Measured scan of single mutants.
Amino acid sequence: MSIQHFRVALIPFFAAFCLPVFAHPETLVKVKDAEDQLGARVGYIELDLNSGKILESFRPEERFPMMSTFKVLLCGAVLSRVDAGQEQLGRRIHYSQNDLVEYSPVTEKHLTDGMTVRELCSAAITMSDNTAANLLLTTIGGPKELTAFLHNMGDHVTRLDRWEPELNEAIPNDERDTTMPAAMATTLRKLLTGELLTLASRQQLIDWMEADKVAGPLLRSALPAGWFIADKSGAGERGSRGIIAALGPDGKPSRIVVIYTTGSQATMDERNRQIAEIGASLIKHW
Rank of each mutant, 00 (worst) to 15 (best):
A245E: 01
M184V: 09
R202F: 05
T179A: 05
P105W: 04
L205Y: 01
L197F: 07
G114D: 04
A211N: 11
D269P: 11
V82I: 12
S96Y: 11
L192K: 01
H94E: 11
V29C: 14
I275E: 02
T198N: 12
D113V: 10
K144C: 10
Q37V: 13
F70S: 09
K213L: 12
R91F: 04
E237G: 14
N98D: 15
I278K: 03
L47E: 06
K284C: 08
K252T: 13
V101F: 06
E195V: 08
G279R: 02
P165G: 06
D113H: 11
G263W: 05
V157Y: 14
N272Q: 05
M115T: 04
L120H: 02
P60R: 14
Q274D: 05
V214F: 04
E108T: 13
R241G: 06
E195C: 09
G154Q: 09
K284G: 12
H156C: 11
T198D: 10
R271M: 14
I243C: 08
L47R: 04
T158I: 03
N152R: 14
K32M: 13
T139C: 11
D113Q: 12
R238E: 09
H110L: 09
E102W: 08
D83H: 05
I171H: 15
W208P: 00
R59G: 03
N130T: 01
G248T: 00
E56H: 08
M115V: 06
T138Y: 14
D129M: 02
E277P: 03
L196T: 14
V257F: 05
L136H: 00
E119M: 06
T198G: 12
K109V: 12
I256Y: 04
E145H: 13
M209Y: 01
G194T: 14
I256D: 03
L135Q: 07
G251A: 12
A182C: 13
E102Y: 15
V29A: 15
I244P: 01
D155P: 02
H110E: 07
Q203L: 10
V82K: 06
L191D: 02
G114Q: 03
L218R: 02
S233W: 02
R92H: 10
L160Q: 05
F70W: 08
G194L: 08
H24E: 10
M66A: 07
N173Y: 13
F58K: 06
G242P: 02
R176K: 10
Y260M: 13
I278R: 02
S201D: 04
I229C: 09
A40C: 06
K213T: 09
P217Q: 12
I259A: 04
L137T: 08
T186S: 13
Q86G: 15
G141F: 05
P143A: 07
L38N: 07
P165E: 06
R273S: 12
R241Y: 01
E210L: 09
L160R: 00
S233Q: 02
A77I: 09
K232A: 02
A133I: 02
E164S: 02
Q265D: 15
A215Y: 03
E102H: 13
A222L: 07
E108Q: 13
E102I: 12
T262L: 07
P65F: 03
R159D: 02
F149Q: 08
N272D: 11
E237Q: 15
K30E: 07
A225F: 11
L120I: 05
F64M: 06
V258A: 10
S240E: 08
D161C: 05
A266D: 12
K32C: 08
M209D: 00
V214H: 05
Q97K: 15
I45K: 01
A245Q: 03
S128D: 02
L28F: 08
P181W: 02
E108K: 13
G85D: 11
P249K: 15
L120V: 05
K71V: 01
R81F: 08
P143G: 06
T126D: 07
N152W: 12
Q37Y: 13
L137I: 10
R202I: 08
A132L: 00
E119R: 05
M115Q: 08
T27A: 07
F64E: 01
G248C: 03
G239I: 02
R273C: 10
I283E: 01
I275C: 05
S57A: 12
A124Y: 01
M180I: 10
A34T: 09
V42E: 03
N168A: 07
L188C: 08
Q204R: 11
Q86T: 15
L79V: 06
L55F: 10
H94M: 11
P105G: 06
A235C: 06
E87K: 03
G242K: 03
G90F: 12
Q86W: 15
E26I: 10
K232T: 01
V101D: 10
I259N: 03
G236V: 00
R162N: 09
Q88S: 15
S233V: 00
S240I: 04
F58I: 07
L196W: 14
G234M: 03
R41T: 09
S57H: 10
V106Y: 08
A185C: 07
N98I: 14
D212V: 05
S264Y: 06
K213P: 05
G154E: 11
I275R: 02
P217K: 13
T179N: 04
E108Y: 11
E169H: 10
A225V: 13
S254C: 13
K30W: 03
E277G: 10
D155V: 00
R273F: 10
G226M: 07
V29P: 03
V78T: 08
H151F: 11
A245P: 01
A280F: 13
K284E: 13
